[in-house]
Computed example of a mutant assay.
Amino acid sequence: MAETIEEIASRVRELRELEKVTAEEMAEYLKVPLETYICYEEGKTDIPASKLFEIGQRLDVEMNLLLTGEEARVRIFTVTRKGEGVEVERRGQYKYQNLAGKFLSKRAEFFTVTIEPKKEKPAAYSHPGQEFDYVLEGSLNFSIHDNEIILNEGDSILFDSSYKHSMEARGERPAKMLVVVI
């Protein structure tokens, strides 16, 4: 199931308004210019997954609600079959698939992330918490806090995600990772 940027943007705006949080307050919370935040809500600019995570925290909602419009309901377990995770349409270099969106009161978010090879340097993002990345396929350059690390299939990294970080596929093949945001 692929959700469009416009659908997600509309949900973010509606939930923000229901919580009586102004666009200015949200932009300040996310540490982005107001103009950037307004473009997020208008669907003109893709909302990075790290910012969606922060928006969910600020509005006290599960990320699944932002991604799909559906409340998480499952308390005991959830199974996501291959290819059935909620995909978020990305304009950038990363394609996300949420793997456990239906589970209620998660303490982490679980994704597969596919990183397409590109010529330009990817933008760096930060978000609260910690992140664990495990390379399933391919090879990538991982950048964090002035450090460049090459990660190959089977390698993993756990890091403080409040530091700006980015990933870039090496070579001509995409890289695929399991990502856990805590």
Score class of each variant (00 low, 15 high):
residue 31 K to H: 13
residue 112 T to D: 01
residue 168 E to N: 06
residue 16 R to P: 07
residue 114 T to C: 01
residue 101 G to H: 13
residue 20 K to T: 11
residue 164 K to R: 06
residue 131 E to R: 03
residue 126 S to F: 10
residue 11 R to H: 01
residue 177 M to S: 02
residue 13 R to I: 07
residue 1 M to S: 14
residue 64 N to Y: 15
residue 153 E to K: 15
residue 179 V to F: 05
residue 105 S to H: 09
residue 28 E to F: 11
residue 156 S to A: 08
residue 73 R to T: 15
residue 163 Y to D: 03
residue 169 A to Q: 05
residue 149 I to A: 00
residue 4 T to I: 06
residue 2 A to T: 14
residue 12 V to E: 09
residue 61 V to N: 02
residue 135 V to L: 11
residue 33 P to Q: 15
residue 141 N to C: 07
residue 76 I to W: 09
residue 2 A to R: 12
residue 99 L to G: 12
residue 67 L to C: 12
residue 141 N to T: 13
residue 81 R to L: 10
residue 95 K to P: 00
residue 84 E to I: 00
residue 33 P to I: 11
residue 111 F to Q: 07
residue 77 F to L: 07
residue 122 P to W: 15
residue 57 Q to H: 15
residue 78 T to W: 00
residue 47 I to C: 02
residue 117 P to R: 03
residue 110 F to I: 14
residue 8 I to A: 10
residue 108 A to M: 13
residue 72 A to Q: 04
residue 130 Q to Y: 03
residue 81 R to K: 11
residue 155 D to E: 04
residue 154 G to N: 11
residue 136 L to A: 08
residue 146 D to F: 10
residue 57 Q to W: 13
residue 148 E to C: 01
residue 31 K to V: 09
residue 130 Q to F: 07
residue 96 Y to V: 11
residue 18 L to H: 08
residue 111 F to K: 05
residue 27 A to M: 05
residue 105 S to W: 06
residue 94 Y to W: 03
residue 83 G to F: 10
residue 148 E to F: 03
residue 96 Y to S: 12
residue 87 E to G: 12
residue 123 A to Q: 09
residue 15 L to M: 06
residue 161 S to H: 00
residue 16 R to W: 07
residue 32 V to I: 14
residue 103 F to T: 05
residue 66 L to Q: 06
residue 129 G to P: 05
residue 46 D to H: 05
residue 64 N to S: 15
residue 3 E to L: 02
residue 82 K to Q: 06
residue 41 E to Q: 07
residue 2 A to K: 14
residue 48 P to E: 09
residue 126 S to V: 02
residue 56 G to Y: 11
residue 102 K to M: 12
residue 10 S to Y: 06
residue 114 T to L: 04
residue 82 K to P: 00
residue 116 E to S: 07
residue 2 A to E: 14
residue 158 L to H: 15
residue 63 M to Q: 13
residue 32 V to D: 12
residue 110 F to H: 12
residue 110 F to V: 15
residue 46 D to C: 07
residue 139 S to V: 04
residue 25 E to A: 04
residue 50 S to T: 15
residue 104 L to V: 03
residue 120 E to C: 06
residue 19 E to N: 13
residue 167 M to S: 02
residue 51 K to N: 05
residue 165 H to Y: 05
residue 175 A to Y: 12
residue 80 T to W: 10
residue 174 P to N: 13
residue 24 E to R: 08
residue 159 F to G: 05
residue 173 R to L: 11
residue 16 R to M: 06
residue 101 G to A: 10
residue 69 G to F: 01
residue 108 A to Q: 07
residue 6 E to W: 02
residue 173 R to A: 09
residue 11 R to W: 01
residue 172 E to Y: 05
residue 100 A to T: 09
residue 149 I to C: 00
residue 140 L to M: 15
residue 121 K to A: 08
residue 20 K to W: 04
residue 4 T to E: 06
residue 72 A to K: 02
residue 72 A to H: 01
residue 65 L to P: 02
residue 86 V to A: 10
residue 161 S to M: 00
residue 119 K to P: 01
